[in-house]
Design a protein around this nucleic acid. Sequence first.
DNA 1: TTTTATACATCGAACTTCTATGTATATTTG
DNA 2: CAAATATACATAGAAGTTCGATGTATAAAA
Lengths: 114, 114
Amino acid sequence: MEKLSKELIGASSIPIILSILSKNESYGYEIIQNVKEISNGKIEYGDGTLYPVLHKLEKKELIESYWKMGESGRKRKYYKISNKGKKQLLSEKENWTIINQIISKLWKIEPSLT
Amino acid sequence: MEKLSKELIGASSIPIILSILSKNESYGYEIIQNVKEISNGKIEYGDGTLYPVLHKLEKKELIESYWKMGESGRKRKYYKISNKGKKQLLSEKENWTIINQIISKLWKIEPSLT
DNA sequence: TTTTATACATCGAACTTCTATGTATATTTG
DNA sequence: CAAATATACATAGAAGTTCGATGTATAAAA
């Protein structure tokens, strides 16, 4: 099972995280598990990687957080997407679609590489 | 005409450049024009952005360069893709396909955002 | 009682990209 | 013919990023 390149992981992390939070409120640890599951283990954020991204998104007001004491007794910081974040997600989707078109256009007219 | 995000431009630059060079040998200035054209102006590399990328690719031996005096008298540094670069391009394509599947999966099961 | 899993946070190293700046030649315009 | 513009490459420094390492703390499992 091959891992993805850092560049792609970096470029995809914000749309992926916003996408997850647009479906359900969640917290850091759960997001890491979720992404790992969705990607079949191909994307595995380290906690030292994800938390700064969440902080950055919060600073940009794309997501909001609140502390919640779980039934378990452990406290969790839940994140939810904001309206601004929803707009951003739409914009990210458009961007992704555009770049995909550019790239697939490039690859289609390419001579065989075999 | 909307410009693409820096993250996406960064993540796509290597596959795009390798893709272009897999079709024709080219030089920095021409690559910039070419990408601008292919993307309908959505991707516009600055020269200060592209040249370091080319140097990096050359250092990794994914491309090779040679100087050529054009008919015009101006000298150009032509780049061509290496065998290693062709393999890399295949790998980049796979990565791109994988991340696309992950993302589109995420977006498909998402509730309406309208 | 020790280890593992859960849960969040931050620091510093390493790496990248981008803007600005510099050099130089050919062509076009006034 | 002089000035401006387009062509062509290069690098330094600022700013931003990711990631591994490290630290704290609690709950559950062994």
